[in-house]
Design a protein around this nucleic acid. Sequence first.
DNA 1: GTAGGATGTAAGCAGCCACTTGCTTACAGT
DNA 2: ACTGTAAGCAAGTGGCTGCTTACATCCTAC
Lengths: 195, 195
Amino acid sequence: MSVRDQLIEAAARLYAEAGYRGATTRRIAVEAGVNEITLFRHFGSKDALIREAISRAETSLAPDVLLPESPREPFRELRDWARAHLADLRGRRSLIRTCMGEIEEHPGIFSAENSPLAAAAKALCRYLRQLRANGLAKAPFDEVAASTMLMGVLFADAMGRDIMPDMYRNDPEHALDQYVKLFLRGIGVGVRRSS
Amino acid sequence: MSVRDQLIEAAARLYAEAGYRGATTRRIAVEAGVNEITLFRHFGSKDALIREAISRAETSLAPDVLLPESPREPFRELRDWARAHLADLRGRRSLIRTCMGEIEEHPGIFSAENSPLAAAAKALCRYLRQLRANGLAKAPFDEVAASTMLMGVLFADAMGRDIMPDMYRNDPEHALDQYVKLFLRGIGVGVRRSS
DNA sequence: GTAGGATGTAAGCAGCCACTTGCTTACAGT
DNA sequence: ACTGTAAGCAAGTGGCTGCTTACATCCTAC
Protein backbone atom coordinates (compact mmCIF):
# COMPACT_ATOMS: atom_id res chain seq x y z
CA MET A 1 0.00 0.00 0.00
CA SER A 2 1.36 3.39 -0.96
CA VAL A 3 2.29 6.03 1.57
CA ARG A 4 -0.62 8.08 0.33
CA ASP A 5 -3.10 5.30 1.01
CA GLN A 6 -1.62 4.61 4.42
CA LEU A 7 -2.12 8.26 5.31
CA ILE A 8 -5.69 8.28 4.05
CA GLU A 9 -6.56 5.15 5.96
CA ALA A 10 -4.96 6.38 9.16
CA ALA A 11 -6.72 9.71 8.80
CA ALA A 12 -10.10 8.04 8.38
CA ARG A 13 -9.51 5.80 11.38
CA LEU A 14 -8.36 8.60 13.64
CA TYR A 15 -11.11 10.94 12.49
CA ALA A 16 -13.73 8.32 13.28
CA GLU A 17 -12.20 7.82 16.72
CA ALA A 18 -11.37 11.34 17.76
CA GLY A 19 -13.04 13.79 15.39
CA TYR A 20 -11.58 16.58 13.34
CA ARG A 21 -9.72 18.29 16.14
CA GLY A 22 -8.62 15.03 17.69
CA ALA A 23 -7.13 13.72 14.47
CA THR A 24 -3.96 15.80 14.62
CA THR A 25 -1.39 15.68 11.87
CA ARG A 26 1.18 14.24 14.24
CA ARG A 27 -1.10 11.40 15.32
CA ILE A 28 -2.09 10.64 11.76
CA ALA A 29 1.55 10.50 10.67
CA VAL A 30 2.51 8.19 13.54
CA GLU A 31 -0.51 5.96 12.86
CA ALA A 32 0.43 5.75 9.19
CA GLY A 33 4.07 5.09 10.04
CA VAL A 34 5.37 8.00 8.01
CA ASN A 35 6.91 11.34 8.76
CA GLU A 36 4.60 14.23 9.49
CA ILE A 37 6.20 16.31 6.76
CA THR A 38 5.31 13.68 4.19
CA LEU A 39 1.68 14.29 5.06
CA PHE A 40 1.96 17.94 4.12
CA ARG A 41 3.97 17.17 1.02
CA HIS A 42 1.21 14.88 -0.22
CA PHE A 43 -1.94 16.73 0.77
CA GLY A 44 -0.89 20.32 1.45
CA SER A 45 -3.03 20.66 4.52
CA LYS A 46 -4.78 18.64 7.19
CA ASP A 47 -8.13 19.74 5.88
CA ALA A 48 -7.47 18.37 2.40
CA LEU A 49 -6.35 15.04 3.82
CA ILE A 50 -9.37 14.65 6.07
CA ARG A 51 -11.74 15.52 3.26
CA GLU A 52 -10.19 13.01 0.94
CA ALA A 53 -10.20 10.35 3.64
CA ILE A 54 -13.88 10.85 4.41
CA SER A 55 -15.05 11.08 0.84
CA ARG A 56 -13.17 7.91 0.00
CA ALA A 57 -14.45 5.99 3.02
CA GLU A 58 -17.95 7.06 2.10
CA THR A 59 -17.91 5.94 -1.52
CA SER A 60 -16.10 2.67 -0.89
CA LEU A 61 -19.49 1.07 -0.31
CA ALA A 62 -20.13 -2.05 -2.29
CA PRO A 63 -23.87 -2.68 -2.45
CA ASP A 64 -23.66 -6.44 -2.37
CA VAL A 65 -27.35 -7.08 -2.07
CA LEU A 66 -29.70 -5.29 -4.43
CA LEU A 67 -33.45 -5.20 -4.35
CA PRO A 68 -34.88 -7.03 -7.37
CA GLU A 69 -36.68 -5.13 -10.09
CA SER A 70 -39.84 -7.20 -9.77
CA PRO A 71 -40.65 -8.43 -6.27
CA ARG A 72 -41.38 -12.11 -5.81
CA GLU A 73 -40.82 -12.92 -2.16
CA PRO A 74 -41.13 -9.58 -0.38
CA PHE A 75 -40.19 -10.81 3.08
CA ARG A 76 -37.07 -12.66 2.03
CA GLU A 77 -35.96 -9.97 -0.41
CA LEU A 78 -36.51 -7.09 1.97
CA ARG A 79 -35.00 -8.89 4.93
CA ASP A 80 -31.86 -9.76 3.00
CA TRP A 81 -31.53 -6.22 1.72
CA ALA A 82 -32.15 -4.78 5.19
CA ARG A 83 -29.58 -7.13 6.69
CA ALA A 84 -26.93 -6.03 4.21
CA HIS A 85 -27.77 -2.36 4.64
CA LEU A 86 -27.71 -2.71 8.42
CA ALA A 87 -24.36 -4.48 8.34
CA ASP A 88 -22.93 -1.73 6.18
CA LEU A 89 -24.19 1.02 8.50
CA ARG A 90 -22.94 -0.88 11.52
CA GLY A 91 -19.50 -1.22 9.99
CA ARG A 92 -19.29 2.53 9.49
CA ARG A 93 -21.01 3.55 12.66
CA SER A 94 -18.01 5.28 14.20
CA LEU A 95 -17.35 7.40 11.15
CA ILE A 96 -21.02 8.18 10.62
CA ARG A 97 -21.54 9.22 14.23
CA THR A 98 -18.49 11.47 14.18
CA CYS A 99 -19.56 13.08 10.90
CA MET A 100 -23.04 13.66 12.26
CA GLY A 101 -21.69 15.24 15.41
CA GLU A 102 -19.50 17.65 13.51
CA ILE A 103 -21.66 18.44 10.54
CA GLU A 104 -22.65 21.82 11.93
CA GLU A 105 -19.05 22.82 12.47
CA HIS A 106 -17.73 21.30 9.24
CA PRO A 107 -20.59 21.38 6.79
CA GLY A 108 -19.88 19.89 3.42
CA ILE A 109 -17.25 17.53 4.77
CA PHE A 110 -19.47 14.65 3.83
CA SER A 111 -21.54 14.73 0.75
CA ALA A 112 -25.19 14.34 1.81
CA GLU A 113 -26.31 14.50 -1.80
CA ASN A 114 -25.69 11.41 -3.89
CA SER A 115 -24.61 9.57 -0.78
CA PRO A 116 -25.04 5.81 -0.71
CA LEU A 117 -27.78 6.44 1.84
CA ALA A 118 -29.79 8.56 -0.56
CA ALA A 119 -29.26 5.99 -3.31
CA ALA A 120 -30.46 3.20 -1.03
CA ALA A 121 -33.54 5.21 -0.13
CA LYS A 122 -34.34 5.72 -3.79
CA ALA A 123 -33.94 2.01 -4.55
CA LEU A 124 -36.16 1.06 -1.64
CA CYS A 125 -38.75 3.58 -2.73
CA ARG A 126 -38.87 2.10 -6.21
CA TYR A 127 -39.20 -1.41 -4.79
CA LEU A 128 -42.14 -0.36 -2.65
CA ARG A 129 -43.83 1.17 -5.67
CA GLN A 130 -43.37 -2.12 -7.50
CA LEU A 131 -44.86 -3.99 -4.56
CA ARG A 132 -47.98 -1.89 -4.80
CA ALA A 133 -48.14 -2.04 -8.59
CA ASN A 134 -47.97 -5.82 -8.48
CA GLY A 135 -50.79 -5.93 -5.97
CA LEU A 136 -48.56 -7.41 -3.28
CA ALA A 137 -48.92 -4.41 -0.96
CA LYS A 138 -52.61 -3.85 -0.42
CA ALA A 139 -52.71 -1.09 2.19
CA PRO A 140 -52.67 2.59 1.28
CA PHE A 141 -49.32 4.14 2.12
CA ASP A 142 -46.96 6.91 1.09
CA GLU A 143 -43.91 5.11 -0.27
CA VAL A 144 -41.56 7.99 0.50
CA ALA A 145 -42.53 8.08 4.15
CA ALA A 146 -42.54 4.29 4.26
CA SER A 147 -39.03 3.94 2.86
CA THR A 148 -37.81 6.67 5.19
CA MET A 149 -39.37 4.74 8.03
CA LEU A 150 -37.64 1.46 7.29
CA MET A 151 -34.32 3.14 6.68
CA GLY A 152 -34.73 5.14 9.87
CA VAL A 153 -35.25 2.01 11.93
CA LEU A 154 -32.14 0.41 10.51
CA PHE A 155 -30.16 3.60 10.99
CA ALA A 156 -31.20 3.97 14.61
CA ASP A 157 -30.40 0.31 15.30
CA ALA A 158 -26.96 0.57 13.69
CA MET A 159 -26.07 3.76 15.55
CA GLY A 160 -27.63 2.95 18.89
CA ARG A 161 -27.13 -0.74 19.55
CA ASP A 162 -23.59 -0.46 20.86
CA ILE A 163 -23.96 2.80 22.78
CA MET A 164 -27.42 2.25 24.28
CA PRO A 165 -27.23 -1.35 25.39
CA ASP A 166 -30.25 -1.01 27.67
CA MET A 167 -32.43 -0.13 24.69
CA TYR A 168 -31.08 -2.84 22.41
CA ARG A 169 -30.95 -5.90 24.57
CA ASN A 170 -32.54 -8.26 22.09
CA ASP A 171 -30.90 -10.39 19.44
CA PRO A 172 -29.94 -8.34 16.37
CA GLU A 173 -31.17 -10.91 13.89
CA HIS A 174 -34.47 -11.31 15.69
CA ALA A 175 -34.90 -7.53 15.79
CA LEU A 176 -34.23 -7.30 12.06
CA ASP A 177 -36.79 -10.00 11.43
CA GLN A 178 -39.37 -8.12 13.47
CA TYR A 179 -38.65 -4.78 11.79
CA VAL A 180 -39.25 -6.24 8.36
CA LYS A 181 -42.34 -8.18 9.41
CA LEU A 182 -43.94 -5.20 11.11
CA PHE A 183 -43.08 -3.02 8.17
CA LEU A 184 -44.52 -5.38 5.58
CA ARG A 185 -47.73 -5.80 7.52
CA GLY A 186 -47.85 -2.03 7.79
CA ILE A 187 -47.93 -1.64 4.04
CA GLY A 188 -50.39 -4.47 3.62
CA VAL A 189 -48.15 -7.34 2.56
CA GLY A 190 -49.19 -10.69 3.91
CA VAL A 191 -46.57 -12.29 6.16
CA ARG A 192 -46.72 -15.91 7.15
CA ARG A 193 -47.45 -16.16 10.87
CA SER A 194 -44.39 -17.53 12.57
CA SER A 195 -43.52 -15.16 15.39
CA MET B 1 -29.59 33.95 36.49
CA SER B 2 -26.54 33.18 38.58
CA VAL B 3 -23.04 33.18 37.18
CA ARG B 4 -22.95 29.44 37.69
CA ASP B 5 -26.06 28.89 35.60
CA GLN B 6 -24.78 31.21 32.89
CA LEU B 7 -21.63 29.14 32.66
CA ILE B 8 -23.55 25.88 32.52
CA GLU B 9 -25.84 27.16 29.81
CA ALA B 10 -22.99 28.57 27.75
CA ALA B 11 -21.05 25.34 28.13
CA ALA B 12 -24.00 23.27 26.93
CA ARG B 13 -24.55 25.55 23.96
CA LEU B 14 -20.91 25.59 22.92
CA TYR B 15 -20.50 21.88 23.46
CA ALA B 16 -23.49 21.18 21.23
CA GLU B 17 -22.03 23.46 18.56
CA ALA B 18 -18.36 22.61 18.68
CA GLY B 19 -17.88 19.47 20.75
CA TYR B 20 -15.64 18.85 23.73
CA ARG B 21 -12.45 20.16 22.20
CA GLY B 22 -14.19 23.04 20.48
CA ALA B 23 -15.84 24.25 23.66
CA THR B 24 -12.74 25.90 25.12
CA THR B 25 -12.76 27.50 28.52
CA ARG B 26 -12.09 30.88 26.96
CA ARG B 27 -15.04 30.65 24.59
CA ILE B 28 -17.33 29.41 27.33
CA ALA B 29 -16.32 32.26 29.60
CA VAL B 30 -16.82 34.86 26.86
CA GLU B 31 -20.18 33.34 25.93
CA ALA B 32 -21.27 33.41 29.55
CA GLY B 33 -20.01 36.96 29.96
CA VAL B 34 -17.76 36.15 32.89
CA ASN B 35 -14.06 35.91 33.48
CA GLU B 36 -12.34 32.66 32.58
CA ILE B 37 -10.92 32.35 36.10
CA THR B 38 -14.41 32.39 37.53
CA LEU B 39 -15.09 29.23 35.55
CA PHE B 40 -12.27 27.39 37.26
CA ARG B 41 -13.19 28.75 40.67
CA HIS B 42 -16.71 27.37 40.29
CA PHE B 43 -16.09 24.04 38.65
CA GLY B 44 -12.43 23.23 39.16
CA SER B 45 -11.91 21.96 35.66
CA LYS B 46 -13.36 22.12 32.19
CA ASP B 47 -14.28 18.47 32.38
CA ALA B 48 -16.41 18.96 35.49
CA LEU B 49 -18.23 21.89 33.90
CA ILE B 50 -19.00 20.06 30.68
CA ARG B 51 -20.23 17.02 32.55
CA GLU B 52 -22.55 19.08 34.70
CA ALA B 53 -23.83 20.99 31.69
CA ILE B 54 -24.64 17.84 29.75
CA SER B 55 -26.21 15.95 32.61
CA ARG B 56 -28.38 18.94 33.38
CA ALA B 57 -29.43 19.48 29.78
CA GLU B 58 -30.29 15.82 29.56
CA THR B 59 -32.54 15.63 32.60
CA SER B 60 -34.34 18.92 32.00
CA LEU B 61 -36.84 17.02 29.90
CA ALA B 62 -40.45 17.60 30.80
CA PRO B 63 -42.56 14.74 29.41
CA ASP B 64 -45.60 16.85 28.60
CA VAL B 65 -47.53 14.13 26.82
CA LEU B 66 -47.87 10.76 28.48
CA LEU B 67 -49.31 7.60 27.04
CA PRO B 68 -52.52 6.64 28.87
CA GLU B 69 -52.67 3.60 31.09
CA SER B 70 -55.55 2.07 29.19
CA PRO B 71 -55.62 2.77 25.45
CA ARG B 72 -58.82 4.15 23.95
CA GLU B 73 -57.94 5.79 20.69
CA PRO B 74 -54.61 4.25 19.70
CA PHE B 75 -53.99 6.40 16.66
CA ARG B 76 -54.66 9.72 18.32
CA GLU B 77 -52.85 8.77 21.53
CA LEU B 78 -49.80 7.37 19.81
CA ARG B 79 -49.59 10.20 17.29
CA ASP B 80 -49.75 12.84 20.00
CA TRP B 81 -47.14 11.05 22.05
CA ALA B 82 -44.89 10.57 19.01
CA ARG B 83 -45.28 14.23 18.08
CA ALA B 84 -44.19 15.35 21.53
CA HIS B 85 -41.30 12.90 21.62
CA LEU B 86 -40.17 13.95 18.16
CA ALA B 87 -40.33 17.63 19.06
CA ASP B 88 -38.24 16.96 22.14
CA LEU B 89 -35.60 15.05 20.18
CA ARG B 90 -35.58 17.70 17.50
CA GLY B 91 -35.02 20.43 20.06
CA ARG B 92 -31.98 18.62 21.41
CA ARG B 93 -30.66 17.35 18.12
CA SER B 94 -27.41 19.33 18.19
CA LEU B 95 -26.49 18.16 21.65
CA ILE B 96 -27.52 14.58 20.96
CA ARG B 97 -25.55 14.40 17.73
CA THR B 98 -22.44 15.82 19.36
CA CYS B 99 -22.71 13.41 22.29
CA MET B 100 -23.15 10.48 19.92
CA GLY B 101 -20.13 11.51 17.90
CA GLU B 102 -17.91 11.72 20.96
CA ILE B 103 -19.21 8.87 23.03
CA GLU B 104 -16.26 6.66 22.15
CA GLU B 105 -13.76 9.29 23.18
CA HIS B 106 -15.68 10.45 26.23
CA PRO B 107 -17.67 7.48 27.44
CA GLY B 108 -19.88 8.09 30.43
CA ILE B 109 -20.28 11.74 29.64
CA PHE B 110 -23.95 11.14 29.07
CA SER B 111 -25.87 8.71 31.13
CA ALA B 112 -27.28 6.07 28.73
CA GLU B 113 -28.92 4.26 31.63
CA ASN B 114 -32.02 5.83 33.09
CA SER B 115 -31.99 8.35 30.30
CA PRO B 116 -35.29 9.90 29.27
CA LEU B 117 -34.96 7.87 26.09
CA ALA B 118 -34.90 4.59 27.96
CA ALA B 119 -37.83 5.72 30.09
CA ALA B 120 -39.81 6.62 26.99
CA ALA B 121 -39.05 3.23 25.48
CA LYS B 122 -40.31 1.51 28.60
CA ALA B 123 -43.51 3.53 28.65
CA LEU B 124 -44.15 2.79 24.98
CA CYS B 125 -43.51 -0.89 25.57
CA ARG B 126 -46.09 -0.99 28.34
CA TYR B 127 -48.61 0.80 26.19
CA LEU B 128 -48.15 -1.72 23.40
CA ARG B 129 -48.67 -4.55 25.83
CA GLN B 130 -51.90 -2.92 26.94
CA LEU B 131 -52.99 -2.61 23.33
CA ARG B 132 -52.60 -6.30 22.85
CA ALA B 133 -54.16 -7.21 26.20
CA ASN B 134 -57.22 -5.13 25.32
CA GLY B 135 -57.54 -6.87 21.98
CA LEU B 136 -56.86 -3.70 20.05
CA ALA B 137 -53.65 -4.99 18.49
CA LYS B 138 -54.50 -8.23 16.76
CA ALA B 139 -51.25 -9.14 15.00
CA PRO B 140 -48.47 -11.15 16.62
CA PHE B 141 -45.51 -8.93 17.45
CA ASP B 142 -42.63 -8.57 19.84
CA GLU B 143 -43.40 -5.42 21.78
CA VAL B 144 -39.76 -4.72 22.59
CA ALA B 145 -38.71 -4.78 18.94
CA ALA B 146 -41.87 -2.87 18.02
CA SER B 147 -41.25 -0.05 20.48
CA THR B 148 -37.61 0.09 19.43
CA MET B 149 -38.82 0.38 15.87
CA LEU B 150 -41.14 3.32 16.45
CA MET B 151 -38.60 5.12 18.60
CA GLY B 152 -35.92 4.47 16.00
CA VAL B 153 -38.00 6.04 13.25
CA LEU B 154 -38.59 9.14 15.33
CA PHE B 155 -34.94 9.30 16.31
CA ALA B 156 -33.73 9.05 12.74
CA ASP B 157 -36.20 11.70 11.60
CA ALA B 158 -35.19 14.09 14.37
CA MET B 159 -31.48 13.63 13.71
CA GLY B 160 -31.56 13.48 9.94
CA ARG B 161 -34.21 15.87 8.73
CA ASP B 162 -32.05 18.98 8.89
CA ILE B 163 -28.78 17.46 7.73
CA MET B 164 -30.09 15.16 4.98
CA PRO B 165 -32.63 17.38 3.26
CA ASP B 166 -32.73 15.16 0.19
CA MET B 167 -33.98 12.25 2.27
CA TYR B 168 -36.53 14.24 4.24
CA ARG B 169 -38.24 16.37 1.69
CA ASN B 170 -41.79 15.68 2.82
CA ASP B 171 -43.87 17.56 5.35
CA PRO B 172 -42.88 16.63 8.92
CA GLU B 173 -46.45 16.37 10.16
CA HIS B 174 -47.46 14.19 7.22
CA ALA B 175 -44.44 11.97 7.80
CA LEU B 176 -45.35 11.60 11.47
CA ASP B 177 -48.87 10.66 10.51
CA GLN B 178 -47.59 8.00 8.13
CA TYR B 179 -45.12 6.58 10.64
CA VAL B 180 -47.85 6.05 13.20
CA LYS B 181 -50.34 4.65 10.70
CA LEU B 182 -47.85 2.20 9.23
CA PHE B 183 -46.77 1.19 12.68
CA LEU B 184 -50.28 0.60 13.98
CA ARG B 185 -51.21 -1.44 10.95
CA GLY B 186 -48.01 -3.38 11.49
CA ILE B 187 -49.08 -4.45 14.96
CA GLY B 188 -52.60 -5.19 13.79
CA VAL B 189 -54.48 -2.11 14.96
CA GLY B 190 -57.23 -1.01 12.61
CA VAL B 191 -56.68 2.47 11.19
CA ARG B 192 -59.44 4.40 9.46
CA ARG B 193 -58.59 4.74 5.77
CA SER B 194 -57.84 8.34 5.06
CA SER B 195 -54.47 8.48 3.34
C1' DG C 1 26.84 6.34 -12.35
C1' DT C 2 24.38 9.81 -11.67
C1' DA C 3 20.23 12.88 -11.74
C1' DG C 4 15.85 13.40 -9.76
C1' DG C 5 12.04 12.44 -7.05
C1' DA C 6 10.38 10.66 -2.83
C1' DT C 7 11.25 10.32 1.99
C1' DG C 8 13.56 11.29 6.44
C1' DT C 9 15.77 14.33 10.38
C1' DA C 10 16.23 18.47 13.08
C1' DA C 11 14.57 22.60 14.42
C1' DG C 12 11.44 25.93 14.79
C1' DC C 13 7.35 29.20 14.14
C1' DA C 14 3.23 31.66 16.11
C1' DG C 15 -0.89 30.56 18.23
C1' DC C 16 -4.12 28.26 21.19
C1' DC C 17 -4.96 25.00 25.06
C1' DA C 18 -6.20 24.13 30.28
C1' DC C 19 -4.86 25.90 34.26
C1' DT C 20 -2.24 28.73 38.04
C1' DT C 21 -0.54 32.59 40.80
C1' DG C 22 -0.78 37.05 42.93
C1' DC C 23 -3.24 40.97 43.55
C1' DT C 24 -7.37 44.12 43.39
C1' DT C 25 -12.27 45.51 43.55
C1' DA C 26 -16.98 45.35 45.17
C1' DC C 27 -20.34 44.25 48.17
C1' DA C 28 -22.86 41.87 52.18
C1' DG C 29 -23.32 40.55 57.05
C1' DT C 30 -22.19 41.45 61.57
C1' DA D 1 -15.15 49.25 61.09
C1' DC D 2 -14.04 44.30 60.25
C1' DT D 3 -14.40 40.26 57.59
C1' DG D 4 -15.75 36.83 54.17
C1' DT D 5 -16.99 35.97 49.61
C1' DA D 6 -17.54 36.49 44.77
C1' DA D 7 -15.66 38.44 40.97
C1' DG D 8 -12.18 40.73 38.10
C1' DC D 9 -7.34 41.69 36.07
C1' DA D 10 -2.64 40.81 34.25
C1' DA D 11 0.70 37.62 33.53
C1' DG D 12 2.54 33.35 32.81
C1' DT D 13 3.10 27.95 32.92
C1' DG D 14 4.19 23.89 29.90
C1' DG D 15 2.27 21.52 26.25
C1' DC D 16 0.06 20.73 21.91
C1' DT D 17 -1.51 22.65 17.27
C1' DG D 18 -0.89 23.17 12.02
C1' DC D 19 2.67 24.21 9.24
C1' DT D 20 7.45 25.74 7.45
C1' DT D 21 12.47 25.86 6.38
C1' DA D 22 16.87 23.81 5.50
C1' DC D 23 19.47 19.92 4.80
C1' DA D 24 20.45 14.87 4.45
C1' DT D 25 19.38 10.26 2.59
C1' DC D 26 17.58 6.73 -0.17
C1' DC D 27 16.09 4.28 -4.49
C1' DT D 28 15.21 4.02 -9.07
C1' DA D 29 15.38 5.33 -14.22
C1' DC D 30 18.04 6.80 -17.65
